[in-house]
Design a protein around this nucleic acid. Sequence first.
DNA 1: TCTGCTTACACGTTTGAACCGC
DNA 2: AGCGGTTCAAACGTGTAAGCAG
Length: 763
Amino acid sequence: MLGVEMYPSLAMGPQRLTDCCYRERETPSHLPLFPTTCEMAVRAAPQRMLAPPVPSEVNGKEQGTVVMELENSSLWKQFSSIGTEMIITKTGRRMFPQLRVKLSGLNPSLRYILLLEVIPADASRYRFQGDSWQAVGGAEARLPDRVFIHPDSPATGTHWQSRTISFHRAKLTNNTLDTRGHIILHSLHRYQPRLHVIEARDVLMWGGGRHSFVFPETQFFTVTAYQNSKITELKINSNPFAKGFRENGMNNKRQREARLKRKISCQTNQQSEPLDVVSCDPCDSTELLPQSTTDCQELDLEDLPIPDPVCGFSPNARAFQEAPVAGEPLDLGQAYPTPTIAEITAPIESVQTTPSADNDGLIDNSAQMILPSYTPAFPATSSSPSSFAAAAPPQCPASYPPGPSTVSPYPSLSAASSTSQPSSASGSLYPSVSSSSYPSLLPSPVPAPTSSPSLPDSSYHLLSPSSSSPQPQGPPSMPSYPALTQSDSPHPLVSPPPPSTYPSLHPSVPTLAPPSILSSSLPPSNVPSAANEISSAPTSCSFPPPNHGSSSLPNPVALPSITSQPHPSIINSTVTSSINTQCNSLVLNQASPTSAFPSFPSSSALHASHPILGSSASYALASSTASFPTLPPAAPSHHVSSVPNHPLPPASYLPFASPTPSSYPSSEIGPFPQFNPSSPYLPEMVHHPPLMPALDPSLPSCLPSSSPASNSLYSSFPSYPLRICQDPRSSFAIPLRHIYGQHRHGHTHGQGTYLDIGGRSLL
DNA sequence: TCTGCTTACACGTTTGAACCGC
DNA sequence: AGCGGTTCAAACGTGTAAGCAG
């Protein structure tokens, strides 16, 4: 049995408290507080509703892997290099940059539902101090999980693959009582958007294969007011809606000051100095500052397909993927000056405070955008679409280019792309990988904390539940995550590294991890009877059993537990969906530690009923474990050369089974590896620069006491299983209502590839 | 006093209705 | 009547700053 004693991380419970309470309010009174309705539904649903006929299986041939490409990844990376901040307001604020992706590898005839989920990146609360984000304490109670469903959902694979998919209409709010369906987040917390592609034969027939994608560069801090002026400038220069605040806009600082002066002068009947007024005249500023200088294209980003294309607001702008022309270097180098080792390791803070950055000619807008700190991780490769090897066996050494010659920020992927992955539009390509084909690379313990983890930023594989056999074709995916290690801690949220490992919380610390690979495991056919009993009531539905009643995936129960494995190898997530015919509400629940809730029933009860705390079998149903291949202990943190050669791990390392008891047993999205600035940067070592500051080592560890610090070389990225449930209460019906409703805001963008997302307002 | 949040504000963009001509 | 293009205004999105609360 698990308990707080065994897993201190459960102390993070407060995060779940709200969630649970919220669910409690949302669930029928007759239902036990815990597990939630969704959880129970999830457990009960699998056999009947979630039989996911894998496309590949259906077609009798290898379907290939689902690949998601973040189109505006370059823009995201720019923000990430500074420390992306997202404004959240009571009424809801859109995200900028927006999530724009392209999908490939889908079965053209199958229908899919696309979901956007925002999950906590860690269990800390942050504060912006000294030009950097510092963890100042524990995260607040977790808020109700909500997802943004793309209005086109469900749509066929052909539909999704024929256009750019934008989630720009998704709104973030800090209003915990929000009734508009916006994604509720805490201010001053760090979050990670996660996208899900779920097979759905019908709006009500969810299930089947699920693919989850995480783009580390999309991590962001939530704020109610921008903390970092660099972010403000970057947003102003990138967001069309903020044009008014640009140098040549009417709402820029000088104009505002001028207006203020005039106002004051009028109020006081005093004449303002003519020169001041004149100098503040809009015309003056506009003339002095050529329009071009205010455009992102002119701000050292001219070669980047931003801002307009990225923003997707400009009707005249080319689709992002169209922007880069073959042979035409995207020249990210401008945005990301060729980094030197020092630059890479240098804390962003220094960069930000560097006179060159602040006072140079860069200045005018664009200067702020040039952030070398991030460059290393994303070399000019952006120019060439960074394609990530499609699900491929992790054994191809070729995918792990050793030489510095590798231009792609994702070396391994580069190789992969050349071989099996057609180059796609610029952007990060994250192919999905069958979970089975993505076994843990190294059972061995994680390297010493002192060794800086080299993140193989190469290919980002998404583990697909659909395929149980290794992908025959494609570059090896394993090498791409040599240094990535998943904390064995059951609590993915926080695995504070030793101080030596995480000397600084600086955003500049290279910690960028490749998009987490998520493997979703199909619900096991043999669900524990107890679980079924518990969940039977709320999840009863009239849905016909799936074509494939049982998943092809190994039975979770039969699979060996990876609990003891310090190196989670794969992000394994199980998607379960249950449908309540009574309402169309869709609730995305995340596994929550029950022990954290003081009001919870006795721990024993929780353990008995909760998949996480309960039996491994039940856990396997709804939990997903994220894992990245761990770096061999002996291997230098920055050296991953040996990793690529790792043979496929034995089947025993398959992530599916791991009923690892944990507060966040479920899917652990790959940890964001921490980069040790002190470690030498080797050219062959491809790092994802730190998108966000590393966790504060000084903070109390949430890791289970049993977990040695050495195992948590990298701060693990919290991931939760995507649980799509239907809540009996209407208040949570927004998502499905949205689905049923039509795209009120749908429109065809000029490019034709722009998908408009209907609002989630109540219909 | 400090920090963080809310709100009003001004500006620019988006959107769709209205209008016009063919 | 139908279609396509243009115009215009309301709605919406944005960052800022003042004010408020803890």
